[in-house]
Amino acid sequence: MFDVIIIGGSFAGLSAALQLARTRRPIAIIDAGTPRNRFASHAHGVLAHDGKPGSAILAEARAQLAAYPNVTQLSGTVNLAAPLASAKLAFQVALDDGTEVQGRRLILATGVRDILPELPGVAERWGRSVLHCPYCHGYEIGGGPIGVLGRLPASVHQASLIADWGDVTLFTAGMPPLDDDALALLARRKVSIEGSAVTAIEGESPAISGVRLADGRLIPLRALFLAAPVQQASPLAQQLGCELEEGMMGPIVQVDAMKMTSVPGVHAAGDAARAMANISFAMADGVMAAVGAHHALITEEGQAQPA
């Protein structure tokens, strides 16, 4: 019986594991090896790790955790998480290889999955020259022409934001008509508006030279940003009965200030439980979820009746 089982071993999960490792309590962390940022070659904006590959940061974190004898690291996908009938507050977790573990608390760091448009050239460039976060990738573009593929109402805000990193064109085909406030904002931010639909991305992948429009024109670009809707990468939160709420890009797990979900004993951290996401936010969330789970264990133990 572990004190805490952490499901998901990317930045949120590993940060939670490190905090709990230092409490000397027995914990397990389970990871399938598919972090959301695996498509990007380097991570930026991460204090003391700027420009390192995300995979290298995660590998270093796993190696550091291996030095703690109270930490068990398991590889695999969790298919089932459910309350344990034989205990007042504990959970049974089953992996795809048949392994089963039990824990008094769960931390879900299971992430989200980006839903990309069915546009030729997007998938193979995702995280390289087709992007979603200017804080993560904008500096490296180095200015010049940048496109924003309009998909959601949030694309107007995205285009106005990205204008700090270059000369932005917002491609509006498929979006609702822009109202006067949106048009005024884009004008103030010097964002150009293009109404013809984008039909393909051109250039030697993973680079981009421009986008081809439905009317045949080629618009030269150095990068293309898009607002990607998201879905929960794992069904575990719903399986456990955790309440979800609508984030900016899709459903996220509802949590309180200590990252506790609506289900007692279950915390959630990282992209699965926050609307605005990057590595630094995920790591901070993991720390808070770990502290929340540890405090909850202490409270439970303090209330236990002596035998």
Results as ranks from 00 to 15, higher is better:
I6A: 04
F11G: 03
A16E: 03
A17S: 04
R25A: 12
P26D: 14
A28W: 12
P35W: 15
R38L: 12
R38D: 13
H42M: 10
A43G: 15
D50H: 04
P53R: 12
G54C: 14
S55Y: 07
L58W: 15
R62E: 14
Y68G: 02
S75T: 15
G76T: 10
T77I: 13
V78Y: 10
A82K: 13
S86H: 02
V93N: 07
D97W: 01
G98I: 00
L106G: 08
L108M: 04
L108F: 03
A109V: 10
G111L: 13
G121M: 15
V122M: 10
V122F: 09
E124M: 05
R125A: 06
L131S: 02
C136W: 15
G143N: 08
V148I: 15
L152Q: 12
A154E: 14
T169E: 11
F171T: 08
A173L: 04
P177S: 04
D179N: 13
L183H: 04
R188T: 15
I193V: 15
S196T: 12
G210Y: 05
A214K: 03
G216R: 06
R222N: 11
L226Q: 12
A228H: 08
P229I: 01
V230S: 02
Q231D: 08
S234V: 00
Q238M: 09
Q239G: 09
Q239V: 05
L240V: 01
E243F: 02
M249Y: 13
G250C: 09
I252D: 01
K259Y: 03
T261I: 01
S262M: 00
S262T: 11
P264I: 04
H267K: 02
A268E: 06
A269F: 06
D271F: 09
A277K: 14
D285C: 12
Q305K: 04
Q305F: 03
P306E: 05
